[in-house]
Amino acid sequence: MKLRSAVCLASAALTLGAVTFAGALPFRATDKIDPVADAKAFQKFFTDKFPKVKYEDFVNGPYSMNEDLHRQWQEKEQFPPYEFSLEMGKEMFSKPFKNGKSYEDCFPNKGIGIRQNYPYFDEKEGKVITLELALNRCREANGEPPFSYVRDEMAALTAYMAFTSRGKPMDIKIPNDPRALEAYQAGKEYFYTRRGQLNFSCATCHVQSPGERIRAEILAPALGIVNAMPIYRSEWSGMGTTSRRFTTCNSQIRGVPLSPQDDEYRNVEYYLSYVSNGLPISGPGARP
């Protein structure tokens, strides 16, 4: 009895938050899938939990959670470490492929200011298309080999595309197609399912523990967590794509990461982006 109350006390804050949240995010298959209600509950969960954080600031990951870090970050932004990547991306973007076309020909508005619309659900294919995937498909359609999803070229291209879209609110649509709802729901389930030897879900770290230190790293909140991608990380001494971040998070839990751009990761990105609708694109980001 004593034991039980001690634990309840110790974890009261966490549990309370999670219960409220779980209530808003049912897992039973019979429940109606309701992305609009999900997004509302999701955003409310974070704004209630962190009443002092300015809404648009959630997109700044760990920096939104800690004042000292926030100050360091603003200093860093004077000489952003992702600058070289941005330059490289800009140059790559307009440079013609061997067939004379370029990335500009593959995207609406020549690829400028459109980051906030990715990922989208492709009704012809019945699948989620992320920006990284669309970029490689553009290359392949023009006879170029695809880039690695986790390396510098992909980071540079997405950094440039994010930069031209800075400040635009995330604007993910779920078309009236049962498969789109299914993809959304699958992404949500993946996000909340515990796995790996350490028994963590994405939500364990980014919903239950944002703002807490895991060793020396401060965990980013799940709200707006993809708006800053790609990111420069001092710990990586380089840039990381969304694919790189997802696979790294999965290895951290001693789980086997999926391949980059696996259907499940695409669905997770679709879910996370949808529930962050309205928050501004802030990429490329810089992290400790």
């Binding site: 986790v150 030897q197 696979t247 951290q252 001693r254 980059p260």
Partner: peptide, 13 residues
């Protein structure tokens, strides 16, 4: 392709 960091939780037991 999977990048490996020296994160505290990375190493398998």
């Amino acid at each position: 392709e999977t990048p490996v960091t020296d994160h505290p939780l990375t190493r398998p037991a």
